[in-house]
Amino acid sequence: MDLFKIFGREKPSKDVAKERLKLILIHDRANVSPQFLEMVKGDIIKVISDYAEIDEKGLEIKLTRTDADSADSPALVANIPIKKMKDIGR
């Protein structure tokens, strides 16, 4: 729960900077380039489009971290807005 959001205050800039630095380190440790993420995004769009009509403008794919066993592990997070499901094989 983010208490800053509940009380309508922004996170202090040091916390924002710390979070950004963590994400940069995760990108470096995972050895993932922006071009690689764009290729993954294209492949995900291609596969999901076979089954659903998606809003590509609202599509968000990012590399973030998880706290698996107290070690920051990279995680690929995808937010894919679906307009409607296709009627394939129903």
Rank of each mutant, 00 (worst) to 15 (best):
M1L: 08
D2T: 08
L3M: 06
K5Q: 09
F7R: 14
R9S: 08
K11F: 07
K11V: 06
K11P: 06
S13V: 13
K14L: 12
K14D: 14
K14Q: 15
K14V: 12
V16E: 04
A17D: 10
A17Q: 14
K18T: 09
K18L: 12
K18F: 07
R20S: 11
R20A: 13
L21F: 12
K22N: 00
K22W: 03
I24G: 06
I26G: 00
I26K: 01
H27A: 10
H27E: 13
R29C: 00
R29T: 02
A30K: 09
A30Y: 01
A30R: 08
N31S: 07
N31P: 02
Q35P: 00
F36G: 00
F36I: 09
L37T: 03
E38A: 15
G42T: 10
G42R: 11
D43F: 03
I45N: 00
I45W: 04
K46F: 03
V47F: 04
Y51W: 09
A52P: 08
D55T: 08
E56F: 03
K57I: 12
K57F: 09
G58C: 01
K62L: 03
L63T: 13
R65G: 13
R65P: 00
D69K: 13
S70N: 08
A71V: 13
A71W: 11
D72H: 10
S73N: 15
V77Q: 14
V77R: 15
A78N: 07
N79P: 04
N79Q: 13
P81A: 09
P81V: 06
K83E: 10
K86N: 04
K86M: 00
I88L: 11
I88H: 09
I88T: 14
G89Y: 05
R90K: 14
R90N: 14
